[in-house]
Design a binder for these strands. Structure first.
Lengths: 199, 199
DNA sequence: CTGTACAGGTTAACGGTGTTAACCTCTATT
DNA sequence: AATAGAGGTTAACACCGTTAACCTGTACAG
């Protein structure tokens, strides 16, 4: 008997409600009791479907990673030159973060403590997104074929820069005098240029 | 009568203990009751010296900003060429983050909620660090004098990239196959190069 | 059929959190 | 000598994640 017996009922309702709470009340407001009362169950019933709050978060994170992955993939296969495509991928990443700040927050800005037991299989899923960036870099690269290792580190560097911009903006750490759109453009441009493709 | 009457006693003890807790037990472990019991006072006594937990955090953040500022300043006045000096400043920023992860966490990775009422005067203090980066960029810049506005946005872009690297490393989000040192070098190099000084 | 195992809920409780209200006590000033 | 206030206290409120113990219906074995 597959464990999917309850996948269509309470488990999904919990997940959907949790997402809704995070999205329109913020991560701080996400509590077991709140979720439970929103769906008309007791708080402890959640533990019948998730190991604990962290496991619930991990499930939300994975959902977010999939959504992000689709957006990146779409950008990566847009009808453009390879360099512009890489740029589009970067823009898509940032756009996702700025459009879904609460989601981005739990995906990438959670305290390390919560990620201690992030399941490897979900970690692998998340890594695919990095690989999309990596492929875009390789395609845009002129100087021959870099090793997989080299590509991974380049992609991670690009990711770090993009994440820095998104997370600072989301956390309202950016000087109010700065135009957000221009900052994003700059970061993308500088990041892509930093890879120095044009010979 | 100056408000510094208690600055040398309990207020300082609270701050020192709070810092100690954060540094060697992590942000998660920082609670009013824990601080209080560590110094042998009741939890509510803290409220006689700080408006609340957030105010306490803000004080810690400011301390951290000052420490970071000193390190950046030192790097910015090292005996090197301007471009290398900028690089040193970037390295100093990252080094600070990696050496003081718990401190960095409360300084730059706190949930936005906690920063809602961050006092403007402390915000201004924090901005000085950005100005150090800005000056280093200007000195390293070849293409004439950019406007203050332009400089601010460039500095913010650089900051974002550095912060991205630091925060992902601290949060253990980086693939274990990646050499941390090399990643840092790459990010610094790409970030500086992204500014494209060499014509 | 009857008995039983078990899935899927429940309530009560534990030990924690930030914060507020009410109170106490000592010191300094009028 | 009376009083105001600084600097503490305890008790309590409303939350939090999580566990233990219990209940209830349904499916399946003898």
């Amino acid at each position: 008997m597959p464990s999917s017996s309850s996948d269509k009922t309470l488990r999904r309702a919990i997940l959907d409600t949790a997402r809704a709470v995070v999205v329109d009340q913020g991560y701080q407001a996400l509590s077991m009791r709140r979720i439970a009362s929103a769906i008309g169950y007791s708080a402890t019933s959640i533990y019948l479907h998730f190991e604990g709050k962290d496991a619930l978060l991990h499930a939300l994170i994975e959902e977010g990673m999939q959504r992000l992955g689709r957006l990146l993939q779409r950008a990566a296969s847009s009808d453009e030159t390879p360099v512009v495509r890489l740029q589009r991928v970067c823009e898509a990443y940032i756009r996702f973060g700025l459009k879904n700040p609460e989601y981005y927050e739990i995906m990438f800005m959670l305290h390390p403590e919560h990620m201690k037991r992030f399941p490897p299989e979900k970690y692998r899923r998340a890594r695919r997104n990095l690989e999309i960036i990596g492929k875009a870099i390789r395609n845009a690269s002129t100087n021959g074929s870099a090793s997989a290792e080299e590509l991974l580190i380049r992609a991670t560097g690009v990711w770090a820069s993009l994440h820095g911009a998104v997370s600072l903006i989301i956390a309202h750490r950016i000087d109010s005098k700065i135009d957000q759109k221009e900052l994003v453009e700059r970061v993308v441009k500088n990041t892509v240029r930093g890879l120095s493709f044009t010979k």
